[in-house]
Each structure stands twice: as structure tokens, then as C-alpha cells.
């Protein structure tokens, strides 16, 4: 893979050309020709990131099944075509890292992604080793972002990640949690450590982070990646048969996927949401949320109230 500047150029060039190219791909969504993708700056550097990324938990764990690897490659291809860049993975996700690596290889797309993985080991001395192993599986020399997974041995890992960042072995560092767990401890880490990113669960039903973590991250200049934007898919199971509210179109919302994702990325503290999918049509729907208008604060309140009533 070429250096960072080449990658940033490729991501930027891809996004620039998308304003025109994407509209037919997003047919049926609320985007209109000329809409530009929603970008968010990483607070610590100002580098812009597309506001919808891609998760790989479960969806990319297909082992050595060539047919499914090929199919997931097409999902990733669609993601990139529609302006996506951030891919989130972890050594905890079984074969997902190998499948992402195989897909990137097929698409020759190592330079077009913002590669985010995690450190997931209780052994605080294994940070570098695990980072190198994950990078090898992705087929990249280094990650853009490494996050301590679920705060596991975070003190040791964070110390090493800081050293790696200083040496240019990784560009950004962060820490993750999910399902609303250990928010107090995460708040202390955000307050006391120099983080580039935090990753946490936030969606139209799980809004615990609204109270403290999101305002704190904003105040401390920490980028926020939102995991489980669909509550692992259960938001669709609960609400998909219900009608969208009549006023949804005003907020640029034409599908439930856009409803859930626009609710998240319209929060001023949020940098990027990372929905996961196995299906090309779902990827199209999800990426559609990155185009067109976003709900304002008042509309966001109505969205939360609407699903609460259903």
C-alpha cells in the first residue's frame, strides 16, 4: 500500500466524484443529484471522514467459504462505490479480518479505506504483536485507527498505542465499548487520556450516551464512532412493519435504515456510524443515509418520540 497521502487523496477523490455519480445508485432514497456525502472532521486533525462506515461483526465472519467471500467482496465494493471508507474490525470477529483482507485484495482497494481495528487481549504486553497480526490479515502495513476493544487491559494497551502513534506505526488511537456498558469508566478515560476516537453504542432506542459521553467527547475533541446503530438488527425487526412518520421526508428520510442512521449522524458529536450488513441492497440503503438533508435538533426529538410511541 502506498503512503498516507496517497490514501487520503484516493478517499477524497472518490468522495468528490460521488456527488454526481452516486445519485442513480441511491435511486429511491431521498438523495437528489448533486448531493454531497456527509463528511465529518476527525477533531484531533481535521481529516474528513464519511459519516457512514461499515462494521464486520458476524457479517464478514464467513471462514473459507469462497462463495460467501465473493459475495461479501461485492458488499464491500458497493460500500466503496457509494463513498464509504471506514471499516471496523477486531481480532475477536473470527475470520472477518481475513475476509476483509481478501476482499480488499480482490478490489485492489487497500488505499481507499480508513482501516480501523482493535486490540483485544487481556495480555497488556501483546499490543504490537496483535496489531501486526491484524495488519497482516488485512494486507496493510499499518492501521489508520487502533482501538482498545471493550476497555480490556486498556491502561497497558493505551500506553503502547501512544508509543506506536508517536513512532508512526498507527495514525489514530481509541477505545471502545458497546451495549451501554462501563460508561462511567469510559468517561474517566476520555477525561484523563489523550484519545483520538471513542466507539460506543448509540441509536434511536439506546440513548444513554446522550447524557454524558457524547457531550464529553465533543468537549474533549474526541471523534465518536457509533456501533450497533440498528441494535444488532433488532430495530428493523421491531419497526420495519410500521409506517415512517408523515414528516420523515422533510428530514430527508425515505427508509427505516435512513431513519435510524440519520438520527445518529445528525448528532453533532458523532463522527461516523458503522452499520454491518451481508446484503448489497441493504448496503445501498444504509449508504443512502449519507446523502441529502439531515434532521435538525427538533426533528431528532420527534424521531425519538415517534419510535417510543410505536
Amino acid at each position: 500500500m502506498a503512503g498516507v497521502s496517497r490514501r487520503r487523496f484516493l478517499i477524497g477523490a472518490g468522495l468528490g466524484s460521488l456527488a454526481l455519480a452516486s445519485s442513480p445508485l441511491l435511486a429511491g432514497k431521498m438523495a437528489t443529484p448533486g448531493d454531497a456525502p456527509q463528511l465529518r472532521p476527525i477533531p484531533s486533525t481535521g481529516e474528513p471522514l464519511p459519516a457512514i462506515g461499515m462494521g464486520t461483526w458476524i457479517t464478514f465472519n464467513v471462514g473459507s467459504d469462497q462463495r460467501l467471500i465473493e459475495q461479501r467482496t461485492r458488499v464491500l465494493e458497493t460500500f466503496l462505490e457509494l463513498g464509504g471508507a471506514v471499516i471496523d474490525c477486531s481480532p475477536m470477529y473470527g475470520s472477518s479480518a481475513d475476509v476483509v483482507g481478501a476482499a480488499l485484495e480482490t478490489l485492489d482497494a487497500h488505499d481507499r479505506v480508513f482501516a480501523a481495528s482493535k486490540i483485544w487481549t487481556g495480555d497488556g504486553s501483546k499490543t504490537r504483536e496483535q496489531a501486526a497480526s491484524s495488519a497482516g490479515r488485512w494486507g496493510i502495513p499499518r492501521f489508520d485507527l487502533l482501538q482498545v476493544h471493550n476497555l480490556l487491559s486498556w491502561q497497558d494497551h493505551l500506553a503502547t498505542l501512544k508509543d506506536m502513534k508517536a513512532r508512526g506505526e498507527v495514525r489514530y488511537l481509541g477505545i471502545t465499548t458497546s451495549h451501554g456498558r462501563r460508561h462511567d469508566e469510559l468517561a474517566r478515560v476520555i477525561e484523563t487520556e489523550d484519545l483520538d476516537f471513542v466507539q460506543l453504542t448509540y441509536n434511536v432506542l439506546d440513548r444513554e450516551a446522550d447524557k454524558r459521553l457524547l457531550p464529553l467527547a465533543q468537549e474533549r475533541g474526541v471523534a465518536v464512532i457509533v456501533n450497533r446503530p440498528f441494535q444488532g438488527g433488532s430495530l428493523f425487526r421491531r419497526f420495519q412493519t410500521e409506517p415512517l412518520p408523515g414528516w420523515a421526508a422533510e428530514a430527508g428520510i425515505g427508509t427505516w435504515a435512513a431513519f435510524f442512521l440519520k438520527f445518529i449522524i445528525s448528532h453533532p458529536a458523532v463522527t461516523c456510524a458503522i452499520p454491518a450488513t451481508t446484503r448489497i441492497e441493504h448496503m445501498r440503503e444504509n449508504m443512502g443515509a449519507m446523502y441529502g438533508p439531515l434532521p435538525d435538533a427538533g426533528q431528532r426529538r420527534r424521531m425519538a418520540e415517534y419510535v417510543r410511541q410505536l
Binding site: 461483526w57 465472519n61 467459504d65 460467501l68 475477536m92 473470527g94 456498558r181 462501563r182 451481508t278
Partner: peptide
């Protein structure tokens, strides 16, 4: 209390399609 926030689904790291394809493969 933290353990209680996990459900059975949180421990299954693959989807039904992958499992059923194992028999075919």
C-alpha cells in the same frame, strides 16, 4: 451486573447462512 447485560446472541459470532453452508461445503 455487566455479565447480565449479555444475551445468548452476543456470543454467536456468525450468521445462519454460514452455518448451513458448512453442510453443503
Amino acid at each position: 451486573a455487566s455479565w447480565l447485560s449479555y444475551s445468548l446472541q452476543d456470543f454467536v459470532m456468525f450468521g445462519p447462512e454460514v452455518l448451513l453452508r458448512l453442510f453443503i461445503r
